[in-house]
Design a protein around this nucleic acid. Structure first.
Lengths: 142, 142
DNA sequence: ATCTCAATGGAAACCATTTTTATTTAACCT
DNA sequence: AGGTTAAATAAAAATGGTTTCCATTGAGAT
């Protein structure tokens, strides 16, 4: 079934704009995690005018709403990934081909009980080379 | 027992320089995670000339060697922390007072077996407010 | 003491990301 | 449909943490 992006946006109390719909469409059809710059490039094929700050803002809002996931790359750039898996889990990301594999939720939630205070956010991510890239001898790239 | 910083540096095949020793001393006496900028400021009290790139380089090398830990702040800046706990574990960091609590190792290592490829690195970190800051009503700060 | 390569300072570059401000547009209410 | 309002956007510029470059200095081995 296709995703109802308009409904998703409404649920987040975000206005349903063509740019946001196109952003979601671009993310959801990508097979890898993508950079804001790349999203911007792709949207330039659809809109005569599309500003980079808009892309950054929308990606950030969508990530804050939990619709898309941030990928923290070792190169310190931020990437985004639309993960159809709606249950709580984390990711293994390939540093060569940028594909993403789901990792079933680890015990961090239990660990949070160790914490005396309040956990606001947590990051769990594994980086490496997927099997295909490993076999092909590809290298991690920036 | 005091840390033998010179020995640590030698083990990493890094030259034992006054700046590196002072960097380690600064990190190890800090009670919180600190920014490169802050390390630089502190070293300026010890050295007439100390360049910011040197601080960045040394912190990066020490982190690569596993002597200090990177803290990935939600504000996207990088901080460093000298953790005396030498066993594998992760951290809960307070976004208000910058203190760090150890989290006993979660199951990510097991999860890595799910991965078909090779895991090069992983991040596990919880962010929030420690109990003291929670009680004091302090807020997460940039 | 000398030699060699790593370490360093300073200035400049880099560049992803954010801010600013004026303009446009979606949403909501008649 | 038309009017209203606050959100969304574009464009340009600024921001600022981080890195690069290169000449100089210094640590460690012989």
């Amino acid at each position: 079934m296709p995703h109802d992006f308009a409904a998703i946006l409404k649920e987040l109390h975000l206005k349903v704009t063509p740019r946001r719909l196109a952003t979601l469409a671009a993310l959801s059809t990508a097979t890898t995690y993508v950079s804001p710059e790349e999203v911007h490039k792709r949207l330039q094929g659809e809109f005569a005018r599309i500003g980079l700050p808009t892309v950054y803002r929308n990606l950030e809002e969508l990530a804050a709403g939990g619709v898309i996931t941030k990928v923290l790359h070792p190169n310190r750039q931020l990437y985004y990934y639309f993960c159809p898996n709606r249950s709580h889990h984390h990711h293994f990301v390939c540093l060569a081909c940028r594909t993403v594999e789901d990792l079933e939720c680890c015990g961090l939630e239990d660990l949070e009980k160790q914490v005396g205070g309040r956990v606001i956010s947590h990051i769990v991510q594994a980086n490496g080379l997927c099997q295909a890239c490993l076999r092909a001898g590809r290298e991690a790239s920036a």
